[in-house]
Design a binder for these strands. Structure first.
Lengths: 221, 221
DNA sequence: GTCAGCCATTCAGGCTGCTGTCAGGTCCTG
DNA sequence: CAGGACCTGACAGCAGCCTGAATGGCTGAC
């Protein structure tokens, strides 16, 4: 399952991202409504976790707009405000569930699992990228039916590419995928992992854009 | 199939009864353990749907008594989210499945249909995984006709794998199968059970995906 | 009640192979 | 051609995993 997390608090965001990720889902974490808007236009999510108080506005506006545009993606609201009026307004705005901060990460898991259960049974989405077949749920890649095994870090990096195929990703964007937000990486780890991915996926799978970053090649090579 | 529904909440009871009935099964709906007791003495049911909190007692007592009297009728427990920690005890008491309220009626139908498939006259379907023959109804596994006996926990874990063969299952997903959602497991119980399953099923039956989880191997080895 | 046997869980010691780092190389660009 | 950007083989350290053994709870027999 693919989850969009909209949360501007760094510590909480990290914790939630890690938990959902541990549960076996793909997580995109954005910190503003602006980025959230962009994300939902380019990616189909199965679930959105939405903080209400964000730097560039209130989550309700985003939620209302989402619903009036016909998007029915389940939304779970994360909020510090536990007032009844908020809750009611959230449900009216189209939220599916509510989590009041501070909440247990296990409680979060339970709610996410509930949503996942509804989606179970759908054929797991196979994404084709170039000559690769990617199964996000299984964390599996195949070429000509041959499975390609990735380690945890390799997969984390690859998932970053797969979610925005063809998009240029900067070094720091990729580092944020591999490490806790803001962790300072002093070495050329990204280069090393790109190298390892290329060795497994094929030399031309990932393009270097000198001075800018990397980009996943989407057509056959 | 004949189903006994033990549920004291009127609204939910009606909804469930209508749903199961629409699915083509005969439903007897009782609202107390006392009536449930009487019903099972006079009628042979193929499935029991059991609420836990009832006016005249707790469902576990009923379930335990049922099992110790040798009755093996499948039981699906219907429980509210905040009672979900009872799951451990439920497993021990002999429940076959769990549904957490509020649940989708379609989810209910799916579970009931699964039971129906297993228990309707024809021998329950044998699933082949690798060189193993798995009988979901009987909780039985064979290799070359030789039965392999699993304990309750071992089976619970294995069933998790069987339901999604080849899929990567994270540690917390597996823990959710054995315990309540979010139950904090401080030790390496999952590792221990994986180890035991491997000892019984064959060393290569379950693959470790380092840092990510486990996956059932589906081809012969 | 007592006892034996089984099972779930925990712990510790040992092992595997992933991760992050570095160094020496190649490839671009001006 | 010089300088920077990038690539990749090698390796030490350690996180993550495996499993034998110990513990305590529960059940059923007598």
């Amino acid at each position: 399952m693919r989850v969009l997390l909209v949360e501007d608090t760094t510590g909480l965001g990290e914790a939630v991202r890690d938990q959902i990720s541990d549960d076996g889902h793909a997580v995109d974490w954005v910190q503003t409504l602006g980025f959230a808007e962009t994300s939902i236009q380019t990616t189909a999510y199965d679930l959105i976790l939405l903080d209400l108080i964000l730097p560039d506005g209130h989550g309700f506006g985003f939620l209302r707009k989402l619903r009036t545009s016909g998007n029915t993606t389940p939304v779970i609201i994360l909020t510090a405000r536990d007032q009844v009026s908020d809750r009611i307004e959230g449900l009216n705005a189209g939220a599916d569930d509510y989590l009041v901060k501070p909440f247990d990460l296990s409680e979060l898991s339970a709610r996410v699992a509930a949503v996942a259960r509804r989606y179970r049974g759908n054929p797991s989405p196979l994404i084709r990228v170039g000559d690769l077949e990617v199964d996000l749920g299984d964390h599996r890649i195949r070429r000509d039916g041959q499975p390609i095994e990735l380690t945890a870090r390799e997969w984390a990096l690859f998932e970053g590419f797969i979610q925005r195929p063809g998009t240029l990703l900067s070094r720091s964007q990729l580092e944020d995928r591999l490490y806790a937000f803001g962790a300072e990486i002093e070495s050329n780890t990204i280069e090393v992992y790109v190298s390892r991915l290329r060795k497994k996926l094929g030399r031309d799978a990932i393009l270097t854009v000198r001075g800018m970053g990397y980009r996943l090649e989407t057509h056959d090579h």
